[in-house]
Amino acid sequence: MNSTVTQLSAKINKAKDALGKLPSKMENQYNVFQIFFVNVANFSIFTGRFFKEMIKPPYEFNELMKQSYLIGYKSLSLVGITGFIMGLVLTIQSRPTLAEFGAESWLPAMISVSIVREIGPVITALICAGKVGSGIGAELASMKVTEQIDAMEVSGTNPFKYVIVTRVLSTTLMLPVLTVFNDVISMFGSFAGVNIKGDVSFHLYFAQAFAQLSFTDVIPSIIKTIFFGLAIGLIACYKGYNSNKGTEGVGEAANSSVVLASLMVFIVDIVAVQITSLFIN
């Protein structure tokens, strides 16, 4: 009898605990949603301010050139090496499957279409999200911690225009250039891959590769890289500029810039593919 009462009271206490925890759990979920929507609203305001400041003179051409050099030129080697390996591996991996169907001669065309339409832009954007996004996020957060942004503001310079607009414009302008570079190097990688187990002339390979490519492959893929660049720049700058947790915030800004920018690349990609298929197919 006693043991039954003890078990029952234990069960009642457990139920009471669970009931007690329920409101705090709901509160936590509410807070998570609230933080999410506040962030979305703040990011929208940040994006709106970017477009407003971008149009309004004076323009920071020198800083834009400097940032384009740092973001574009300094990423060439990484993008180039990755592109070459990507083209090479893609060719080596695809060859056996095509050979089974006796369609080896389609290899250059298949590789060029996949690189130009999808793999080239996405891989370049992911590399930039990692290299450039983390760099911008950490740099801006560190500038915030060491009061450099405040110092710009008190010297009468608009830090948003000088720091944010130039960096976002640079990523937006440089990503299409890097993607074209990546595509070209990937084709060379693919040409090398084809010649590992065969003997195809440079002229024949590129004639076949370009035969299947049209402007409807190239133009939409270049246009979407503009949006990839814009998303990477905006997210990295937003995370860095709004960092406020001291030195801990620097690492956090760099990390969340990369994660969110990479995720946004895929979201923009799926939207771009849907829009393209509406007009082209």
Binding site: S142, E153, G156, T157
Partner: peptide, 22 residues
């Protein structure tokens, strides 16, 4: 903001860390 920026040029601010542009 434009008027504030022109006043800011007449007010110097020395930050605790120096706030030099790295």
């Amino acid at each position: 903001i434009d008027e504030l920026n022109s006043i800011r040029k007449k007010i110097g601010f020395l930050f605790q860390s120096g706030a030099l542009y790295d």
